[in-house]
Design a protein around this nucleic acid. Structure first.
Length: 429
DNA sequence: CCTCCACCGGAACTTACGGAGT
DNA sequence: ACTCCGTAAGTTCCGGTGGAGG
């Protein structure tokens, strides 16, 4: 699995930042920046007043339709105020259902309360998928405990030892939130969780809050870890379209110029996001990009067609970003898939691999093994730029039928910018 | 009902690399 | 200088399998 991440550090937390790239036509011979600079410095007709509030990782002080969840999480964790170790807690729910927001909201409030009472408890939030490896998760824990650790060169055991000794020396207890733990456990097993659930820190303790959007995640855990980790559980249901509208209104009122957005636009954003999985992040991104589109057009208010444009823009931006950051061999494989389907050839693993080898030969590149290409194809599938299904041709074996999911021209345009590959596309367009 | 194709996909291993500790 | 560490990309090996054709 290839990971794309853009790290943005604020308040000691790392966030994933999605970047949407908007293209505009350059105007004649004049400085293309001039008009932009003029418009932005004058700020003639701003629609977005507070950009931060529309970012999906912003944690608002009020979370609509999540009072029950906040109470549930709060009830479990509030024992810290009596200097008692809280039960370990598990939060389940699909992406964009507010798990992270609720958790961080409670963390914020409790850490205020804890410092007022002068207790030595630290609330640590780690996103395991962004951290990427066990080692880096541990490194973040160490950073939270105030130990400086090198980013490579020391063993994981050593890191763990440093974390423990530093924490117990300073007599600090920890409530640690592992966001997207499933990513960690899938790739590296549950050893780290096991160690943490059973490790003492002198007089202190460690409580864990696990967040997962994979409901089958439990099956991956060792029963010992499972029983101690999910002492308490909170399940998050996806937002409905009306709930999403409330959330959007809530942010829009604070972030946008009054009167610049109507109920129709909010409802549309909510409906489009609800059609997916009730993902609040999607809904917010959609609203933000719609507002940006409208602002760029110099429109008075956001209209429905801005939302439609924004939707296309988000999707295309994503595809473009994904494809253009693909390594060479993945590109060649992708090219092989799109070219062969353009030519109307049958696109099974075998034929794709042969075409891939031909391309490699003309490029003078050493081809990878079929096994390796197989995983590359799986990765492309996971990224959503191709679609695979397993089919059986009986006597003629079993294979993957690979289908493109994006228009050929779009892929060709992006891959064509790569000089080494553009040659293969010339005679096809 | 059995065979056997053309792959799938898990697991262990290799290689290359950058860095820490001593 | 030398050893140990984690990460990433890739290879080797191999057991597994849905279903058309015998």
């Amino acid at each position: 699995m290839i990971k794309w991440r853009i790290m943005v550090k604020t308040n000691n937390y790392y966030h994933h930042d999605e970047i949407t790239v908007l293209y505009r036509k350059e105007t004649g011979g004049e400085d293309p920046l001039e008009e932009i600079i003029r418009r932005h410095s004058q700020n003639i007709n701003p629609i977005i007043i507070k950009h931060d509030l529309l970012r999906s990782e912003y944690v608002p002080s009020f979370l609509p339709h999540r009072a029950q969840h906040i109470k549930a999480v709060g009830n479990v964790l509030a024992t810290v105020l009596k200097a008692v170790k809280p039960s370990n807690l598990f939060l389940y729910g699909k992406t964009g259902t507010g798990k992270t927001a609720v958790c961080r909201h409670v963390f914020n409030r409790l850490s205020e309360a804890v410092s007022e009472k002068g207790l030595n408890v630290k609330f640590v939030y780690v996103n395991c998928r962004l951290a990427g490896t066990e080692y880096r998760v541990l490194a973040e824990l160490c950073a939270a405990a105030g130990v400086n650790v090198p980013f490579t060169g020391v063993s994981k055991g050593e890191l763990f030892r440093r974390f423990q000794s530093n924490a117990s020396r300073s007599n600090t207890s920890f409530v640690i939130c592992f966001d997207e733990v499933d990513a960690l456990v899938k790739d590296f097993g549950d050893d780290l969780l096991y160690e943490l659930t059973r490790s003492g820190l002198g007089n202190g303790w460690v409580s864990l809050v696990g967040i997962s959007n994979d409901l089958l995640f439990k099956d991956m855990l060792d029963p010992r870890v499972l029983s101690s980790l999910s002492e308490e559980e909170v399940v998050f249901q996806p937002y409905t379209a009306t709930e999403l509208s409330d959330i959007l209104w809530n942010r829009a009122e604070a972030a946008l110029r009054p009167g610049s957005v109507g109920d129709d636009v909010i409802k549309l954003c909510a409906a489009l996001a609800a059609a997916e999985h009730g993902d609040a992040r999607r809904a917010l991104d959609l609203l933000r990009v719609s507002a940006e589109v409208a602002e760029r057009e110099g429109a008075e208010k956001i209209e429905e067609h801005h939302v439609r444009t924004a939707q296309g823009l988000i999707e295309r931006g994503r595809v473009k970003e994904v494809i253009s950051s693909l390594p060479l061999h993945s590109r060649i494989v992708l090219l092989a898939i799109y070219v062969s389907s353009k030519k109307g050839l049958e696109t099974t693993s075998g034929t794709i691999y042969n075409i891939y080898r031909e391309f490699c030969a003309t490029l003078g590149v050493e081809p990878l093994t079929d096994r390796r290409v197989s995983t590359l194809v799986s990765e492309l599938d996971m990224l959503g730029i191709i679609a695979c299904d397993l089919v059986s041709y009986g006597r003629h074996g079993r294979t993957r039928r690979i289908k493109p999911t994006i228009a050929f021209d779009e892929v060709a345009e992006i891959l064509g910018k790569d000089d080494t590959l553009s040659g293969f596309l010339d005679d096809l367009s």
